[in-house]
Structures are given as C-alpha cells and as structure tokens.
Design a protein around this nucleic acid. Structure first.
Lengths: 352, 352
DNA sequence: GCCTGGCACTCCCGAACGTCGAGTGCCAAG
DNA sequence: CTTGGCACTCGACGTTCGGGAGTGCCAGGC
C-alpha cells in the first residue's frame, strides 16, 4: 500500500520536526519542509488516521500534532535509520577515554563524555562485583590483632577491608591461610569463590574451643573472621549499586514543564537504586534499549525516556550505562552515542 | 542610640520575613508580625534610611523591601542568634552517621544528611591526602613482575596501585625493601614521607647498571619503580579533588529565577574544582564561613550563598564541607546544621 | 478510490485596557 | 522623633478582542 508508507513517512516527519522545533507541527509546515509530494489536505487525512491509531495527538483543537509515546515507539522500532557518529564525535570518544588511569576514572570520564555527546543526563554504573572473577587476594598484617584483606577483581576493581582478628596468626599460619584462600578463590567467579571460601570457615560456635582448624596453626575463630570479611566484601551490595551521574545541567534545556519533568528527575538522580533500575534492563553487544515515557516503572517519570545498554569485557553486560532525557529527544543520535561509548568502554576493559 | 537599635531590629525582621515568605516585605506587615512597638510610618522612615545605606532595596517602586547582599552580610555578622538544633535533628545526625562503615561511606552519608537537614545542595570534600599521615604501607607480590603497593592513611583512606617491576625481588630483598619503606614513611605526614622515600631511590639513570642498591639485594630500578608508584599515590591530585554532592533536587525549590540561578549552579555542581574553591576557604574548629552572593569569585553564582566549614580529626581542617543555596536562605539554621555535621564527622575521624 | 482546493470553524496567543490594592513618600501635627 | 493622613505609583490580575495557524469536512477532479 502506498498510502501506508506515506503515513509512516508523515509520522517520521512529525517526530523529526517536533524534536527539532519543540512545537506542534501542522500539515502545511510538514509538506514544505519535507519533500512529500502531496498537498497539505492529504497530509491532514493521514494525520487524522495516525491520530485514530494513537500515534500522534493534538494538545488542543486547531493546534499541530505531537507524537505520543506510541508514536515515538514506532519511530524508534521501525523508522530510525542508523545514524553514524561524526568523525569529530569519534575523535572525542577516543581522546576522552584514552587518558583514563583506572576503572573509576573510566566510569567518570564516560559519564562526562556521554552527557556531552547527547546533551542529556548520563548515568554509568560501576562494574558490578558479581559479574567478575577474583584475580588475587592478599592478607596483610597491620598489627597483632589487625589485618588488611585486599581483594582484586578481573574488572580492575580493588576492595580492601580491615579485619580485627581475635587470635594473632604466626607467620606459618598466615602463609597457610593465605595459600588456602588463594586456592579457593583465585580465578573463580564471585559466587563460586564465596562458596569455596565458606567451606574454609565452619561456624566457630559449633566447634569446641580447641577443635583443630581447617588451616594448620591458625585459630578457627581467626580464620572465620578473615573469611567473613572477604565474603562481606564480595557480597557488598553497596558497590554493586554505585553509579556515576553527569550532565544534570542539561536539565535546564527542558524548557517547559519544570515541575512535571525536571523535579522528579532531579529527585530520581539522587536515588541510585532507582537509576540502576532505569538503565538496568539493558541489552548487550551493541543492542540499545529504549524505554519511552510511561513504559517505565515510575509514574513520575512519564515524560522522560531512557536509552541504555550494557557494557563489559567482550561486550558482555557487566554493567549498564545510558542516558535519561525528555521523551522529545533525538533518538537516532542518542542511540548511536550510547552504543559507541559502551563499545569503546568495553574495549578498554578488554585490554586491561 | 535607640533608633539605631530599632533600625537593626527592622533589618533583622525584614530578613526573617523575606526568608520565610519569599516576598518583599512592607512596613505594615512588619509591625504586625513582629512586636516592634512603633507605627508603620516610623518603620518606613527606618526603611528609607536602611535603603540609603544599601542594606535593603525595592524590586520596584511601591513594592516592599528585600535585603541586599550587604543586608544579609550584616544580618549574618551581627544579628544572628545562635540557633540550637532540635533534638530530632541531633538524633538524625547520630543515627545517620553512626552506621558508616568506612571513610567513603561517612562522606556519602554526610552529604545526604546535610542536604536533608538544610534542604539545600550539600557538598562534602573527601579527606585530602596532604593533611594526613601515613599509617601503614604494604607491598604485595602479585606475580614475577607485578606487585601491589597499598598505602593506608590516618584519615582512613586506603590507596592501592599496581607496580610493574623490571627485576623480580627475592624474599629477602622484599623484606628489606618493605622495612626501609616503612621506616621512611610510617607516622610521617605526606610531605615528609615523600621526601624520605625520595632518598631511597636516587634516579637510576645516574647510576651505573651494577651499582649497589640502597636496599640490599634489590635492583635499584625495581626500588625506583616501587618508590615512584608510592610517590605518585601520595601526590595524586585527583583524590584531593574528590567531592560528593547531594540534594540537587532541592534546587527545585528555587522557584523563580531558574535561568539566573539554577542553571549556573547546576553547571557548577559538575565542576568539582569549582565546588572545592567555593567551599574551600573554610574556617575550622566550629568556625563557619558564609559567603553571600556576589562576594564569591563566580559572577554567575551572584544569587547563591555558600555556608561552609572545615572538618578533620581534632577539629582540624583536613577537608571542607558545606552547602550552596539561594542568598535568600535561613542562615542561622543552616549555619547550625553545617557546624553540627562537621563536628560530628570530625569526632568520627578522631575515633577511627 | 484517492487526492486536492476551498471554506467555515475552533481556539491559542498576545496586546491592550481597566481595576484593585499594597506599599510608598512626604507633610504637618503631636 | 514619632505618628496619622493622604495622594501617588506601579505591579498583579482579569477581561476583552483581533489575528492567525491549524483543523475537519465537502465537493469536484484524476
């Protein structure tokens, strides 16, 4: 059907014009700006049909049309042509990210980069513990009853904890404990390492005080203290929920609808758990997820959209990143930027 | 002079009313709400005098008066009565901060607490390296050519770095290097530790390849690599410039003047260097600094004020914290909250 | 069957206008 | 120095009123 195609072209034109001008677009302006070879009246008929189907709406009678969430959805799913980044943007990504010195720096630079590229609020999750493997564990004696446990993960993250030990360890016992821990944890994924470590330290209260330790020469309570701290570091929910946020100044461009859009979003930006949930359902390997307006779980964010994806070594979804902005945004460019940054960050993680 | 005192009372009343109502305050409302025992006409005369001296201004003829920056300044310097925190607020501070597990957690909780207490944007600087002393240094062998250097500071911060060593160390050499490093650094302030460490590793290029090392059994280049990494960790400017920001949602209450006030502030919140400069010139030991409107170095923040102070073990100024808000703010309460949080955080640092 | 020009209709937007009231400045009297 | 009175100013608010953009619908043409 030829009219069917034209209708979609009209919808695309409406979305593009509305995103560019932020004003309801009328039939006359449409035919002028886009080279549809038909008259305004014809476009009006198409618009009426599109409105019946719920893709566009009028703010009030005798105003132009604006896309609905459903309209944006159709646009994103079927009408976007892949929009390659400009060479300046590519260059910006490489120069921006190549100077990063560690994983935290990568995340912070990414969030800045992403907010500048998209001119939206950017959100980048720090790599989660749970997706990575244990690269090394070190135990350091700080004093007679204090030790430091250091946990180094494949994602480049280093966690350290102070341990208060009830019974000091001799050198031999320390070496034994160290090798046992390394054997149990190194190379394993977090979940497996936790299981293996757990076996090293049976609940000390179930043992008689003088019972033989799993680790020769080390008091079982000391072993348990060390293991507990390591387990705690591995299961630290706080560090799984860390996110970096940037570009809040871009909210100033929201223009209208301060109360309905900006305020709830500002509040959400403080709630890292909420942000994680927003950008969390992300595809991986170049797949970008778009959540438009009321499709999301938060009523108050009904006029915001989320564009997100996963990143991680090998393109896996170790963590998520994305942007939050008004439903009225330039989806093709934004999606391209999100995909590109995620890809580049993943490659950096591959190398390190 | 009795009139002089009344004039100050009038100024105080104007500031208090304007802060409470956000509206220009007129002579009649003043006498009604505050118990000044004079007529509106008298107050009008006083107001005219205050206006001549630059303490208050009218937005337009026949409107009420609002305080100028100069008026707020006088109010803060001479008219504020110390306003003790409510017991609920005291309780909030203790319950909020007592659950903190490490220094980062303390900072993050503080920023949240402070923004909720003051209903403003809170800024807390992470404790600087430069103000603290070295508590411990640990060197850990990760592999034949990789080591991990861990630096533990009196502020509770732990820095770790991976070292690539050109020549592997034997056990004895490692022990020797470790004890030399500890001797040089532990207990010293950062600057002194850096100087002492520097002497351990003379520039290796000036030495003949086989020259005797300062550390018996260790190749001078390896020693230099380790020392370099430690020095780098100690002089890390990035970590001196870390700040936590919270309560941006409170900007929504700015009400009017979005473009002139909120937008520049949102931009400033992303620039951590700017924030540090804003809250940086802070007094210590219970002294709270207030910078009102255009007194600050940034023209664009002419309608914002900064209330800040230092904190650190023993009440010293290891780092700064404070809030940023509209010039029209409740200075007495805000100053009390800032002082109380800084004091409590300092005490936490004392204990750990 | 679909496109098109014409036409009446709707309704937002901005300007102009008038009214209201809060607040002021000034003056003369206490 | 204070006070009551009084005329005046000026923004806030509501109303009115064209202008114009845009629509829906209809009848005619391809």
């Amino acid at each position: 059907m030829i009219q069917e195609e034209r209708r979609l072209a009209v919808l695309r034109a409406i979305v593009e014009d509305y995103v560019a001008t932020e004003e309801p677009v009328g039939s006359k302006a449409l035919v002028e700006r886009h080279g549809l070879g038909v008259s305004p009246a014809t476009v009006r008929n198409d618009m009426a049909a599109l409105e019946d189907e719920g893709y566009i709406a009028q703010p009030h009678t005798s105003a132009g049309r604006i896309p609905t969430d459903k309209g944006y959805r159709l646009f994103v799913d079927r009408l976007t042509t892949v929009k390659p980044l400009s060479s300046a943007e590519r260059r910006a990504i490489t120069t921006f990210l190549d100077g990063a010195v560690d994983i935290d720096d990568v995340v912070q630079r990414s969030v800045r980069l992403l907010s500048q590229l998209t001119r939206q609020v950017a959100v980048v999750q720090y790599p989660t513990l749970s997706g990575s493997t244990v690269r090394h564990v070190e135990l350091v004696v700080l004093g007679p009853e204090r030790m430091l446990a250091v946990l180094i993960l494949s994602s480049g993250r280093v966690e350290q904890r102070i341990v208060e030990v009830p019974v000091p360890l001799g050198d031999d016992a320390l070496a034994a404990l160290r090798s046992r821990v390394l054997l149990a944890a190194v190379g394993q994924r977090i979940a497996e390492a936790m299981a293996a470590l757990g076996e090293l330290a049976p609940d000390p209260e179930e043992l008689p005080p003088g019972a033989p330790s799993v680790v020769p020469g080390a008091d079982p309570r000391t072993v348990a203290a060390v293991v507990d701290v390591l387990l705690e570091a591995m299961s630290d929910e706080r560090s799984d929920q860390r996110v970096a946020v940037g570009g809040a100044a871009n909210l100033a461009r929201f223009g209208d609808s301060f109360d309905t859009a900006v305020r709830p979003l500002l509040e959400a930006l403080e709630e890292h758990v909420v942000l994680l949930k927003l950008i969390g359902e992300a595809g991986s390997g170049g797949l970008v997820t778009v959540r438009i307006g009321a499709e999301g779980p938060y009523e108050q964010l009904a006029s915001t959209s989320v564009v997100s994806t996963g990143y991680g070594p090998g393109g896996g979804a170790l963590a998520s990143l994305g942007i939050v902005g008004p439903t009225r945004m330039d989806y093709p460019s934004t999606m391209a930027a999100v995909r590109a940054v995620a890809g580049y960050v993943s490659r950096i993680l591959d190398e390190s």
